[in-house]
Design a protein around this nucleic acid. Structure first.
Length: 577
DNA sequence: GCCGTTTTCGGCCCGACTGTTTTCAGTCG
């Protein structure tokens, strides 16, 4: 079983236990275990197979979970899960997706009314059976009916780039107010996560009511879910929820820290505070005296909050309770790569295959963006739908690049190709053609359903080809649309390191492939990452910022990113490789 | 179920808001 599958089993166990009203800390420990497993770049099977190592070396995995992982690895089954599934039907778990329904209320509905599915819940609400239950009323019933629609279309998080469009609109709408002193987005949006559950807006303002009125009047707001003295929540017609918090200036930094999360990061922050006789909440950092009284220590700026805990400010992208606290304590926090560090773009298409802009237009647009070097990498012949290039057409394009080079002073244009790794293994163009290229991007487009062994073999084969420079979008996933193909990334990392190859971080916001944890793993292997736009139009060059953001989440510095090097430095590296 | 600079038991982050209830439980982030 793969890490992802085992993490999913632990998640399911947590859901089922929660539904049964089990010890909430036991539930949390399974969720925590699932997350740590999902964050792992090494496979559990590898760790378990090594006699000198133990699964309990994974933080958050103790003796009990280690045994369960071993059961899953050897038998593919978990008796605990089977047992739980006998007691609770998995369909009932869907009830937890209804906003406002937690384990307690869902269990009560199941127990008292025999509700087993979202459909049955709808019927129970419509026949007004729900309002009679203890702890329920007419308003709850109406709320559930509203929430049902959301639950039915749930299971989908918004891609960061889509959320960003809403954010830009929201910020502009709010900036129209004079009474706002500070305005920041927090939450997973600020952490640059690839998908966003909801949006969090933080405001410092004197006039709370005016801010809330303005917030509620954002075009596209379908519903005001809640409105209190400091907190308000709305839902857009698209289903996206936006939370607003209004705080005073002395709390702004503390609130920003608090609402940026992640949840797990904040748990560690709180724990540290406690060790130091402090308390951290969204209003500030407080010293707790022996008599129980509290005095304000910090909270105006986010950095103050961390300083009070003897930590440097931690970039939001790193706040996932992974390595950041260890780094921060040792003074080893990476200086994360920035968009302005990027000097080259090494994956783009033209009208020769499936691009929308000509070679000249792409090169021109790259120069206008201030890039020092680009590689033109159209598809190879196997990608027939895109009219992929055979040797003859490819050489013709390279001649065109030769002519173009004389015109474009100060911009280096590399003769490249995105060469398919064939289903049966091997490259889509002969070695003598690849040998003439400056830059060979190898990628899997076909046969994505093949077995783990097959796909891994294909990619390893490409890494062994001395003319291949890099593997593009190494896992093939499309966010919200297609799972990554089965590939043993450990072997890919080892082979890439051995053969001196690079790995691509595809910056297309639908791909963001490599994943952040794979970026971090590649860095540990000393593999240079190239962030590429894979642009199919001149506007497509714009997506570089998404790739940089993903790289930051992976903890990459400019030194870890090959195309953050000057052309001179990059060229030297190419020649050596 | 996990974990340990008050360690092998007894903690485990903390506050806002809602609806239902006369003082709080449940949910959410």
């Amino acid at each position: 079983m793969t890490n992802r599958e085992i993490a999913a089993v632990f998640e399911q166990v947590a859901d089922l236990l929660e539904f049964q009203g089990a010890n909430p800390f036991r539930v949390r420990s399974y969720r925590n275990g699932a997350r740590k497993i999902a964050d792992l770049s090494e496979s559990l099977a590898t760790i378990a197979a090594e006699p000198s190592r133990s699964l309990t070396e994974i933080e958050g995995v103790g003796k009990a979970q280690a045994e369960k992982i071993e059961q899953l690895l050897s038998t593919g089954r978990l008796p605990l899960l089977d047992e739980l599934l006998e007691q609770v039907s998995p369909q009932v778990l869907a009830l937890l997706r209804v906003p406002g329904l937690g384990p307690k209320k869902a269990a009560l509905l199941h127990r008292e009314l025999g509700v087993n599915s979202l459909e049955e819940l709808r019927k129970a609400c419509q026949s007004q059976q729900v309002r009679g239950l203890k702890g329920f009323g007419a308003k709850t019933e109406e709320g559930i009916l509203k929430g049902l629609t959301i639950a039915e279309q749930a299971d989908r998080r918004t891609r960061w780039v889509e959320a960003d469009e809403v954010v830009q609109r929201l910020l502009e709408h709010m900036r129209a107010l004079d009474c706002i002193a500070q305005l920041e987005m927090a939450g997973s949006y600020r952490r640059g996560c690839e998908t966003i559950g909801d949006l969090d807006l933080l405001v410092e303002a004197s006039d709370v009511a005016t801010v809330m009125d303005q917030f509620g009047s954002l075009p596209g707001v379908a519903d005001v879910i809640a409105r209190g003295e400091t907190k308000m929540s709305t839902r857009l017609e698209s289903g996206l929820q936006i939370d607003l918090r209004v705080v005073p200036g002395e709390s702004f930094g503390a609130a920003l820290q608090y609402f940026t999360g992640s949840k797990d990061h904040n748990v560690v922050v709180r724990g540290r505070a406690k060790q130091r006789g402090l308390k951290v909440n969204e209003w500030g950092v407080y010293r707790v005296e022996d008599d129980g009284s509290e005095s304000y220590v910090a909270g105006r700026a986010e950095g103050e909050v961390y300083r009070a805990l003897d930590l440097p400010w931690i970039p939001p992208e790193l706040r996932e309770a992974r390595q950041e606290f260890a780094w921060a304590e040792q003074g080893d926090l990476p200086v994360l790569v920035q968009l302005t560090d990027i000097r080259g773009d090494l994956h783009m298409h033209t009208t020769a295959t499936d691009g929308k802009a000509s070679l000249r237009e792409m090169v021109d647009a790259a120069q206008q963006r201030g890039l020092e070097y680009v590689a033109i990498t159209d598809h190879s012949q196997r990608v027939s739908m895109a009219r992929g290039l055979d040797a003859k057409r490819l050489r013709a394009q390279w001649s065109e690049i030769d002519r173009l080079r004389e015109e474009f002073d100060g911009l280096v244009v590399l003769k490249g190709i995105e060469c398919d790794i064939l289903e049966k293994g091997g490259m889509d163009l002969p070695d003598d053609v690849l040998a003439e290229a400056d830059w060979v991007v190898a990628s899997v487009h076909y046969g994505q359903k093949q077995s783990r062994e097959q796909i891994t073999e294909r990619i390893l084969g490409a890494l062994e080809n001395s003319y291949v420079s890099i593997i593009a979008h190494p896992t093939g996933r499309l966010i919200n649309r297609r799972e990554p193909y089965e590939v043993d990334m450990e072997q890919v990392f080892a082979a890439a390191a051995r053969h001196g190859k690079m790995l691509e971080l595809n910056a297309n916001p639908a791909r963001l492939d490599l994943h952040d944890i794979h970026c971090a793993a590649a860095k540990r292997h000393g593999i240079p990452i190239v962030i590429s736009t894979d642009a199919h139009s001149t506007e497509g060059l714009e997506v570089m910022r998404h790739g940089v953001q993903q790289a930051r989440r992976g903890g990459l510095t400019a030194a870890d990113v090959a195309n953050a090097r000057s052309w001179k430095a990059f060229e030297k590296y190419l020649r050596r490789a």
